[in-house]
Design a protein around this nucleic acid. Structure first.
Ligand SMILES: NC(=O)c1ccc[n+]([C@@H]2O[C@H](COP(=O)([O-])OP(=O)(O)OC[C@H]3O[C@@H](n4cnc5c(N)ncnc54)[C@H](O)[C@@H]3O)[C@@H](O)[C@H]2O)c1
Ligand SMILES: NC(=O)c1ccc[n+]([C@@H]2O[C@H](COP(=O)([O-])OP(=O)(O)OC[C@H]3O[C@@H](n4cnc5c(N)ncnc54)[C@H](O)[C@@H]3O)[C@@H](O)[C@H]2O)c1
Lengths: 222, 222
DNA sequence: CGCAGATCGAGAAAATCATCTCGATAAAAA
DNA sequence: TTTTTATCGAGATGATTTTCTCGATCTGCG
């Protein structure tokens, strides 16, 4: 029996519903229909219903869903109401940006310490989070029962650091390095593939230019 | 006739092949089979073949593909060999991290200027890139024919800034804010949904914990 | 030179994901 | 009260993506 039979695509859309709903709540709106969500976020309304259904939230005909309920359901479904501690390794450009961000707490993650191999970085504090020598990671991770690791080291160091994380009890890795980590299947790895996103953008732009050029040459006459 | 009939999933996998191939080349490897790529990156080998096929690259039976050829094909397909200029708006934490990153040039994008609304930031240089007052964006974008915009402002400012970008001739937006932008369909928007990725991670971890707990309670006896 | 083994690539089959259809339901209007 | 209307949710249909199957091709070895 599959415990987790929720489509990955659904999982990826839920956070976007969530942020939209937060904005609605801020504006004081109490009710919302799947159709409205769909229009705002560019998703088909039946898809929105299916997505919301997996969180267990129910809507009422003619009324829609209570914004508060939806927010709570999504939070519970994603486990965003229980904040977990996380360790970050690689306090460079990207690592620093993540450390300075308050938004992750609402997404169930609190970065409680950062680690770096460079003596230049270790010892400092970034946004109130201490940067420690990476050698201290294993011991601290075990003692604090930290199971989430955030990986922001250069690609060539990523595999090694990831193995160290797993050996220290880390169960899930949020990986920013452009490399596919080879780890035991039991470890959850989520890649932030910035290049993928750039690839899509670049390709779309190139196709657009090409078809524009083709149109122009047709217009000019063959 | 659809010009761009390439699955989005393929587009997203290509950069990961690309980085893997770069590492192979560095190690001096000249040939590679689809099966080997598949094993290394966790993709089915027939899928790898289909993906590589869209770039126009051909392999030879019994030998595989030339690493150099594959790299060149992917670069050409994604238009990563033509570097385009880009403007970034929002020189905060995330914006600064992106400005400090040399890797984007290999992905066809060069950030040539940054813009910010805060007088504290405007006027400085970050990693050699000038930060200008955001008011200068429209004029400069037109004059320099910049068509790519990178959006790293807070979510509540994102829609407004995006509209300003589009009004200034921007055709593609790389959006880091957790909001779905409402723009003309002709504008290419690529969302870097960091929260989506965190949602997947969080959910997987929660499911894992739940099933572990269930197992334990069964073991303890019903 | 002919055969064995590895690999490719095209097309069929299967799985997954998105959209469409429709009856049910609750609120509001007649 | 009855009708109308907006919305939900379940199941059928359709589209897309992934995996399977198989014949073709190329290299190296006997
Ligand atoms: N900065 C970006 O905008 C950006 C964009 C896309 C991807 N990335 C990826 O994110 C990762 C980090 O990028 P960055 O720009 O922050 O790099 P960076 O060089 O600024 O930071 C890397 C940090 O990791 C530390 N480090 C190196 N090896 C280590 C080890 N073994 N243990 C602990 N710490 C170690 C370094 O001391 C440094 O502080 C890279 O893999 C990069 O490809 C970054
Ligand atoms: N930092 C992160 O790790 C992180 C993670 C996920 C998402 N994000 C998203 O990225 C965006 C930026 O985050 P950040 O942490 O860099 O925020 P930040 O506050 O550090 O930076 C935002 C910058 O935008 C500037 N700005 C605000 N309004 C502007 C306007 N109208 N025109 C021009 N500049 C303007 C501000 O002056 C500031 O310098 C946010 O939408 C955030 O949700 C950031």
């Amino acid at each position: 029996m599959r415990v987790d039979s929720v489509p990955e695509a659904t999982l990826r859309r839920l956070p976007s519903y969530y942020h939209y709903l937060l904005r609605l709540r801020e504006k004081g709106q109490e009710l919302i229909s799947a159709a409205q969500i769909g229009v705002a976020l560019g998703v088909h309304h039946t898809q929105v219903r299916k997505d919301l259904a997996v969180t267990g939230s129910q809507g009422r005909p003619k009324v829609g869903h209570r914004v508060d309920d939806l927010i709570a359901s999504i939070e519970e479904f994603l486990n965003w109401n229980n904040v977990s501690d996380a360790f970050l390794v690689g306090a460079g450009h990207m690592g620093t940006a993540l450390l300075g961000y308050e938004g992750f707490e609402r997404a169930g993650v609190r970065i409680v310490a950062a680690f770096d191999a460079s003596p230049r970085r270790a010892g400092k504090k970034i946004q109130g989070v201490s940067v420690l020598p990476v050698e201290k990671f294993p011991d601290l991770a075990r003692r604090m029962h930290v199971v989430i690791g955030i990986l922001t080291v250069p690609a060539e160091d990523a595999q090694g650091v990831a193995e160290m994380m797993v050996a220290s009890g880390i169960q899930a890795i949020w990986n920013f390095a452009p490399i596919v980590l080879e780890l035991p299947e039991t470890v959850i790895v989520e890649d932030v593939a910035l290049y993928s996103s750039l690839g899509v953008l670049s390709r779309r732009l190139a196709v657009r230019r090409k078809s524009a050029a083709a149109r122009d040459s047709v217009r000019a006459g063959p």
